[in-house]
Design a protein around this nucleic acid. Structure first.
Lengths: 200, 200
DNA sequence: GCTTGACAACCAAGCGCTTGCTTGTTTTTA
DNA sequence: TAAAAACAAGCAAGCGCTTGGTTGTCAAGC
């Protein structure tokens, strides 16, 4: 990580309650309509303030997106670490992580939507590396550990890194077809994913 | 399909060469930057005309997106039918379809980018049903046939429709990580996908 | 064979509106 | 009473789209 990015991160570490409230509103809207279709007036209106007041907290709309993604990414990292905590069997770890990821995609947990990754293309290049850094040091490290464990036991068919990408794609896409209120539960779906990617 | 949609479709059936040229430019830009970030001035500039002239061919930017998605969807349907033509073994069919889908995602074929599906959210509701109708009568029918065949032979682990969604997600996401110029070829990737979703 | 008219393609200019963001001031909070 | 948060007002730029007029093409009519 470059020096410039290290200067960016402290801002992410201590987010005031007021700021976090605005971020949750923004994340909701980004989830519903996407970043580009969401205007600063939309965000302000739902938060009950005027659009100009937003810029007292953030210096640009782009910074809102960045902070939102950083916050989300950090929250997912913590959730992932908590999910695998105390699990020794890599299969158990993987099951927990799949369910964790699906929960975030469908916003079942307390944290924000994983699908902010959909907005990757909207995030300015200068910010991307910082978000990636947060993701890799926590969230993806959990995945790598679980998948490497499965691979060592000969339980997966692909290279762990390829398997990770295939699983991520399958999970993320479920946003576009899976209905939480249907017969299939999120846990069922997680089992389906595991059944396909593990040699049981 | 409603009557209103039937009136929409003929426009998609006969697209003039000039119109198709503009659509290819638009699709390129949508692929590169996304629909929202692409302006009508961007499209016109790359096509070598002024922005106003676009509206001689399309009545709105939204119609450009719709026609582009319809054209792409039709092209993919034809490609899929051609890919499975003459193949009797459902496994062979599935292999062909996976490679076909990956090729479109990475724009290796002559046809446009499959990832226009990414712009689903940008397409006005009134148009969506029409695009879905085109997709289901050709492209998705091929997939259903192949997957049902595999399921009948006990070669897949999930319900065919769930398997289809998981595969679609895995394929679509590959746009965000797979490098065409890397060691792994598209055919290799297709084999990886098959290895995971088939019980061989 | 030349004119004519119809047509599609495009240009030139700009309208009305929305966007992200700024400024100076007032209210609220600690 | 000073800092933080929000308001009120609006700017400059960019957006999708419209309008009226100018080209080039080509078949029909005398």
């Amino acid at each position: 990580m470059t020096e410039a990015l290290k200067q960016l991160l402290p801002d992410v570490e201590n987010i005031s309650p007021a700021k976090e409230r605005l971020l949750r509103v923004a994340i909701d809207l980004f989830y519903e309509k996407g970043f580009e279709r969401t205007t600063v007036r939309d965000i302000a209106a739902r938060a009950g303030i005027l659009s100009g007041s937003l810029f007292h907290h953030f210096k640009s709309k782009q910074e809102i997106l960045f902070t939102a993604m950083a916050l989300t990414t950090r929250g997912m990292g913590e959730a992932a670490e908590k999910a695998v905590d105390g699990l020794d069997d890599p299969v158990d770890q993987l099951r927990a992580l799949v369910l964790c990821e699906l929960s975030h995609v469908h916003r079942d947990g307390e944290h924000a939507a994983y699908v902010l990754v959909d907005e990757w293309r909207s995030l300015d290049e200068e910010y991307r590396e910082a978000v990636l850094a947060i993701r890799d040091t926590s969230y993806e490290r959990c995945w790598a550990e679980a998948l490497d464990g499965c691979a060592a036991a000969g339980l997966i068919k692909s290279d762990p890194r390829i398997a990770r990408q295939l699983i991520r794609g399958a999970n993320a896409w479920s946003k576009n077809w899976f209905q939480t209120d249907g017969k299939l539960t999120l846990t069922d779906l997680a089992d389906e994913v595991l059944a396909n990617f593990l040699t049981l």
